[in-house]
């Protein structure tokens, strides 16, 4: 069974489970998701839960779609994960694709996936988002690193876009099938984000979210 990878333990602090750490351990994922929902209720008891505002924004963009936290046989998925990236940490080149690595979960049947990241705090320097003009394909698995992500060789000579002026409160939506990375945090203030994914289906006017 999969436990959260060593990469996650050593390099990132986070609040809340995320599905990819439980790719083959669905039962444990849902147990942790339930526990975390109580934690998040506590954290946001005095403040508006940010997912509410994010969902309201999405409703303006997709007025005909219903937006809900994903569930499977009545079990709710984890709503979001808060990630704390400290000095010296970076997130290597990777893609996010629940259809490939999350195939034991019902949400893997979606047609499109978006990554949705709310920036809560930025570091003084570094922590920039870089998106490459290249979609993941299965044969790229030969570039995989042992614990997480891909060798930078997978995006050699690809055009990229660096977003370095993000501020707290900014919401970033990207196609996570395109390779992306976060550059090294170079300031003493940690970069803190709240992340979730959004799933879209061709035949249903609904959007589901999960982390």
């Amino acid at each position: 069974m999969t436990a959260p990878g060593d990469y996650q333990k050593k390099n990132l602090k986070h609040i809340g489970p995320f599905l990819m750490s439980y790719a083959t351990n669905k039962m444990e994922y849902f147990i942790q998701a339930k526990k975390t929902q109580k934690k998040f209720s506590k954290i946001f008891s005095q403040k508006e839960n940010p997912t509410k505002r994010i969902f309201n924004m999405l409703k303006m963009v997709f007025p005909e779609s219903k937006i809900n936290l994903a569930n499977e046989y009545g079990k709710k998925y984890s709503p979001f994960v808060i990630r704390i990236h400290e000095l010296g940490k970076s997130i290597p080149v990777h893609k996010d694709h629940v259809g490939y690595e999350g195939k034991e979960y019902s949400i893997s049947n979606i047609d499109y996936q978006l990554s949705c990241v709310l920036h809560l705090q930025e570091s003084e320097h570094g922590g920039d988002l870089v998106i490459y003009n290249k979609n993941w394909k299965k044969t790229d698995e030969k570039y995989r690193k042992i614990e997480f992500g891909y060798s930078s060789k997978v995006v050699t000579s690809e055009k990229s876009c660096k977003i370095s002026n993000l501020e707290p409160g900014d919401l970033v939506l990207i196609n996570p099938i395109q390779y992306h990375e976060v550059t090294m945090i170079q300031g003493p203030t940690p970069r803190i984000t709240l992340g979730m994914f959004l799933g879209f289906s061709n035949n249903e006017k609904k959007i589901i979210s999960w982390a």
Partner: peptide, 9 residues
């Protein structure tokens, strides 16, 4: 034989 970590979140 197991999957080795993941290629993303």
């Amino acid at each position: 034989v197991s999957h080795s970590g993941v290629g993303g979140y």
